[in-house]
Amino acid sequence: MTRPSTSADASDDDARIDEATGDDATADETSPRPTTAALSRVSRRSFAKATGGLVGLAAVSGLGASQEGTETGGDQSAGIRIGMVSATNGPNFYSDPVQWVEAGSTVTWELVQGAHTATAYAEANDRPQRVPADATGWDSGLLDERGATFERTFEAPGVYDYFCRPHESLGMVGRVVVGTPDLANEPALAEPQDSLPDAAAEMLAALNAVTTATFGRGQGAGQ
């Protein structure tokens, strides 16, 4: 497991993130990113199954589809893996933009291609709080060696949003839904904040639509 970065690593990570971002300086103009419509197609597959009243997510990518025991109703004890990808001449993305897990499950992010982070939307990371108020934010630090991993165990039900530091401006965000949370009390279900990059805000709004359609809107979600 790749350990989270510490303050002693911050300057090194910042330099590497700048380099990774620089590599994609023209990506906003030349590389397509996942669109809301594309995410809707993913969501129809992802939220297709339900078992025991709990909505689960089927794998939505080649990497995800190869994970045994992680589809709805399967044994999640072996953990969930999410790929972090820079497609050749294409977008930067997480292989499962929305992932449902049972409480107590461990999620592992694995670098497939490129250089990426998995960083919680949390005030501790200088971002709006889009994880449960009592949750601890996390930051993988920059992963830039293929096959490198970072993992986190999600003990408490809730909705947890995260992003890639180098590629947030290109809409590289993801969400982990743990258990069956009350959406009315989840910060992640708030409208995307004005301080967020437009592409990230668009994707988060799409994730909100997918999540509320699946788990029920509730009243005053994210308020």
Rank of each mutant, 00 (worst) to 15 (best):
L189M: 15
A148C: 10
L196Y: 09
A190H: 03
F163Q: 08
R165H: 12
E202A: 12
A199K: 13
G147T: 12
A201W: 06
F154Y: 15
L189F: 09
H167M: 11
T149D: 07
E202Y: 00
H167K: 08
E186H: 02
D182Y: 08
Q193E: 15
L142F: 02
D182T: 12
T180K: 14
F154R: 12
V176S: 07
R175T: 15
P187Y: 04
P187V: 02
C164R: 01
F163D: 03
A190D: 11
C164W: 01
E168L: 15
S140G: 10
S169L: 10
E168D: 13
E168S: 09
D139Y: 10
R165N: 14
L170A: 13
D161C: 00
G174K: 01
L196H: 11
L170P: 06
G137F: 05
M172H: 09
N185T: 15
P181M: 00
G171F: 06
V159K: 04
D161Y: 07
L142H: 05
Q193M: 10
A135G: 06
D161G: 00
E151M: 04
A201I: 04
R146T: 13
E151Y: 02
A156F: 05
P187M: 03
H167E: 07
A156N: 08
E145F: 01
W138E: 14
T149H: 01
V177D: 05
P166F: 00
P181A: 03
P181K: 10
Q193N: 12
P197M: 01
R146K: 08
D144N: 12
P166M: 08
R175G: 00
C164Q: 01
S140P: 05
E155W: 02
Y162I: 08
G137C: 07
E202C: 00
V173E: 01
H167P: 06
L183P: 08
F163N: 09
D161A: 04
E202R: 14
F150N: 02
T136K: 13
P166V: 02
Y162P: 02
G174V: 06
P157E: 11
T136Q: 15
E191G: 12
A199C: 06
E168H: 09
R146Y: 03
E145Y: 00
L183Y: 04
G141V: 12
C164K: 00
F154Q: 12
A200T: 04
H167L: 11
C164N: 00
T180G: 10
E155G: 10
L189G: 04
Q193D: 15
G147F: 11
T153S: 06
P157C: 04
V173S: 03
D144T: 01
Q193H: 14
E186S: 05
A135L: 13
V177S: 00
T180D: 15
F163G: 03
L189E: 13
L196Q: 12
D182I: 09
G137V: 08
G179R: 04
E155C: 06
A200K: 09
M172A: 12
A199D: 09
T149F: 05
E186G: 03
T153E: 08
P157S: 08
